[in-house]
């Protein structure tokens, strides 16, 4: 079992943190994991990409993920960039931070291959509700746990608690609720409609 993930977002949205949290969650579950940022200079708002590899075997390679099984899009305005889906596996999954439905995104131009799936999570809205600010990364990780099952919500929660430990109990608690809400929302959607397919 391997899961290669690429996360797209903008500087200030916690893209690198998301990749690190995902690797922490996988490690917590006894898997091998590697988070790699693709850093530029530190600029708020600039497109940022980060990678996460999860594997049952030790990971030796350090090259960027060029054929992801999962793409997470933290900022839907990036969907206009064709590179976002570049190399996505034929049966790959895209998780988009959006309050719109997948059908609406497809009308707006999202193009998926025959075996590829997408799902949307209103992560920014949820983050505003729980954190009081638009920081969608932990919500999306809850969605990743729900949609892939590779990492559990429990592991994601532990990763959040570990990573944000120094930032105070309130922040940790809010992020835990946020991840859980997003997770439950995806589970509910999947149960209600089955997985969205293109």
């Amino acid at each position: 079992m391997t899961l290669d993930v690429r996360i797209h977002g903008r500087g200030g949205q916690g893209v690198v943190t998301a990749a690190e949290l995902l690797s922490l969650a996988a490690f917590d579950q006894g898997l091998h994991a590697q988070a790699l940022p693709s850093f530029g200079s530190e600029r708020t708002g600039a497109p940022v990409v980060a990678f996460c590899r999860i594997d049952e075997q030790p990971i030796r390679a350090h090259d960027p993920v060029d054929a992801p099984d999962l793409v997470v899009v933290q900022d839907p305005t990036l969907l206009h960039d064709a590179d976002v889906l570049l190399g996505l596996a034929e049966d790959g999954l895209v998780i988009v931070n959006s309050s719109r439905s997948v059908a609406e995104l497809e009308t707006a131009g999202l193009r998926l291959g025959p075996g590829q799936r997408a799902l949307t999570v209103p992560a920014t809205d949820l983050a505003r509700e729980h954190l009081g600010r638009a920081m969608p990364n932990t919500a999306l990780l809850g969605a990743v746990a729900a949609a892939t099952g590779v990492v559990s919500l429990h592991a994601v929660r532990r990763a959040i608690a570990e990573r944000f430990d120094s930032r105070g109990r309130l922040l940790v608690a809010a992020n835990l609720r946020l991840a859980e809400d997003a997770h439950d929302m995806v589970i509910a959607t999947q149960e209600a409609h089955g997985a969205e397919t293109a």
């Binding site: 690797s23 988070a35 790699l36 940022p37 850093f39 990971i59 350090h62």
Partner: peptide, 9 residues
């Protein structure tokens, strides 16, 4: 970056 900023075990 490739190593300095990579998170791994």
């Amino acid at each position: 970056f490739v190593l300095t900023h990579a998170m791994e075990e």
